[in-house]
Design a protein around this nucleic acid. Structure first.
Length: 186
DNA sequence: CTTTCGATGATCT
DNA sequence: GATCATCGAAAGG
């Protein structure tokens, strides 16, 4: 069982995406609590893994519990957490964090001071955490990554995914109810 | 408040 | 050559 911070990364992406809400993710000690995720799967037309293995998505077909990092729109680095069994091609996009650690560093990297704007979107998360191609494929249970279990009970809300042109109807977006740090209201 | 649009480059057909 | 799991600024109501 590939379990990190109480998360079974061999589970389907829908389950992992829901379970990750509340978990703390750090890169070199900088990060926060996950408040928004999206699930992607190989049988999902919106997923980068749809259509099979390629150079870009190779990490999605690697072992679960590792990172899949890609460059979005030529500008933004986005962080996914690979799940399900190796070779399947499933993952969870980390869309937003509630900053808890290294906030000064994140303010400097982002160029803004409002904590609600530091990690409220997948591109912002990448910039705030210093994510780059170098993080693609790295295991989540070793430095620079660190995952910590979520502390208290909380309510998870769902919605349709954002910014995709295929399979737009699937409610595969998950968020922490009432959080002020999500990319968009649910 | 909302919608529109440019930036910018890897990836895929 | 078209598309893209985005963001921020600008323009419009």
């Amino acid at each position: 069982m590939r379990q990190i911070a109480g998360i079974d990364f061999e589970a389907p992406s829908l389950e992992v995406a829901r379970a990750l809400v509340g978990v703390i993710v750090l890169v070199d000690g900088v990060g926060g609590r996950i408040v928004e995720t999206e699930a992607y799967d190989a049988e999902d037309p919106a997923s980068h893994s749809h259509g099979g293995l390629s150079a870009r998505n190779a990490s999605m077909f690697g072992p679960p519990g590792h990172a899949y990092v890609y460059l979005s729109y030529g500008i933004h680095w986005c962080l996914n957490l690979v799940c399900r069994e190796a070779g399947h091609g499933a993952g969870v996009l980390v869309r937003a964090l509630e900053p808890t650690a290294g906030i000064a560093v994140m303010r400097q990297r982002r160029g803004v001071t409002d904590e609600r704007l530091l990690c409220s979107g997948p591109g912002k998360v990448g910039q705030a955490l210093g994510i780059s191609r170098a993080h693609d494929g790295l295991p989540l249970d070793h430095p620079p990554f660190e995952l910590q279990p979520g502390s208290s009970a909380h309510v998870v809300v769902t919605g349709v995914r954002i910014g995709i042109s295929k399979a737009q109807d699937r409610p595969w977006r998950f968020g922490l109810a009432g959080s002020a740090f999500v990319s968009r209201r649910f």
